Simulated scan of single mutants.
Amino acid sequence: MRETSGRLLRLLPLLQAHRDWPGTELADRLGVTTRTVRRDVDRLRALGYPVHAAMGPAGGYRLGAGAELPPLLLDDDEAVAVTIALHTSGSEEASLRALSKLSRVLPSRLRHRVAALEASMLALPVRGPEVAAAVLTRVSAAIRAAETLRFDYVSHDGTSSRRAVEPHRLVSWGRRWYLVGWDTGRRDWRTFRADRLSLRTPNGPRFAHRDPPDGDLTAYLTRKMGREMWPYRAVLKLHAPAAAVAGRVEGEVTPIDSRSCRLELASDSWDIVAFVVGMLDVPFEVESPPELTERLEVLSTRYAAAVRSR
């Protein structure tokens, strides 16, 4: 029995390689007969692994997807990577349950590796708002099935609205999850914070997937995300060439002349805008809004007082 179990643990990684395996090749790899391979495949099926078999000269075995999740077999590096990822993923209940299950079965040698990694890492408190796994799963399923999502949405200023959206992609940006989709009511592309969605049932009609906005989703998000999703938006004139600024900040940089450029920047607060601009270490002027100028005056007074106190 122990020999059979050990052979199953050698057979499973071979099947997980996402390729078709002729029975004769599996038998050679395992040092057994093709009849033994068939019996071992039947044992894996009994454990919940959906192993598909094709007959004929081009046939073989392939591990497919089933209705339920069977037991997983991870090598040492994979087990450590998954454990660390769960440790740093936040406090979402599903993550904590998975971490608890995995931690209980880790061998001692792997617990030591995980402990060493945890001791050498610093997890900064920068987690964004949590999004239930069920929400991400439902949105992903609607994208794959090309079904219109119906949901209630709360914008950053607290305004509520009901939306019907053809979902295009889920995007992890910074500390948040976003949905990018075609808003059927507004006839335009929109981005939505996933933590502000209240999904309605059932989904709406099916649709044909559109080409990504601007032909390039990454470029679109880089240009539009700050404007549409972050409430604090500023326009500044920097006394430096655009080439000296571009790539150093997540904002839209437009040349004015050979010695200056315009920076459109968005963030969670005016303090972060001030910090980012200060890190550029170039002279600048605030073009808008006046609220940023007022905040800079407060900060400059505070910094000046700190200098005078020396």
Score class of each variant (00 low, 15 high):
Ala85Cys: 11
Ala85Phe: 09
Leu86Ile: 06
Leu86Arg: 08
Leu86Lys: 02
Leu86Trp: 06
His87Leu: 08
Thr88Pro: 02
Ser89Gly: 11
Ser89Cys: 15
Gly90Lys: 09
Ser91Ile: 05
Ser91His: 09
Glu92His: 15
Glu92Gly: 12
Glu93Phe: 08
Glu93Asp: 13
Glu93Gln: 12
Ala94Cys: 11
Ser95His: 14
Leu96Ile: 15
Leu96Pro: 12
Arg97Val: 15
Arg97Glu: 15
Arg97Pro: 09
Ala98Glu: 11
Ser100Leu: 11
Lys101Trp: 10
Lys101Gln: 13
Leu102Asn: 05
Leu102Val: 03
Leu102Phe: 07
Ser103Asp: 09
Arg104Pro: 00
Arg104Asp: 12
Val105Gln: 02
Val105Pro: 01
Val105Phe: 00
Leu106Thr: 06
Leu106Phe: 07
Pro107Asn: 01
Pro107Thr: 01
Pro107Ile: 01
Ser108His: 09
Ser108Gln: 11
Arg109Met: 12
Arg109Tyr: 13
Leu110Ala: 15
Leu110Trp: 14
Leu110Ile: 15
His112Met: 06
His112Pro: 01
Arg113His: 08
Arg113Lys: 12
Arg113Ser: 06
Arg113Phe: 04
Val114His: 06
Val114Pro: 07
Ala115Pro: 04
Ala116Cys: 00
Glu118Ile: 07
Glu118Ser: 06
Glu118Met: 08
Ala119Asn: 02
Ala119Cys: 03
Ser120Lys: 05
Ser120Ile: 02
Met121Pro: 00
Met121Asn: 05
Leu122Asp: 06
Leu122Ser: 05
Leu122Pro: 00
Leu122Ile: 07
Leu122Lys: 05
Ala123Trp: 01
Leu124Val: 10
Pro125Thr: 03
Pro125Ser: 04
Val126Trp: 04
Val126Asp: 07
Val126Leu: 09
Arg127Met: 13
Arg127Thr: 14
Arg127His: 15
Gly128Val: 01
Pro129Ile: 07
Glu130Asp: 15
Glu130Ile: 10
Glu130Trp: 09
Val131Lys: 02
Val131Pro: 04
Val131Cys: 07
Ala132Phe: 01
Ala132Ser: 10
Ala132His: 08
Ala133Pro: 01
Ala133Thr: 04
Ala134Gln: 02
Val135Leu: 08
Val135Tyr: 01
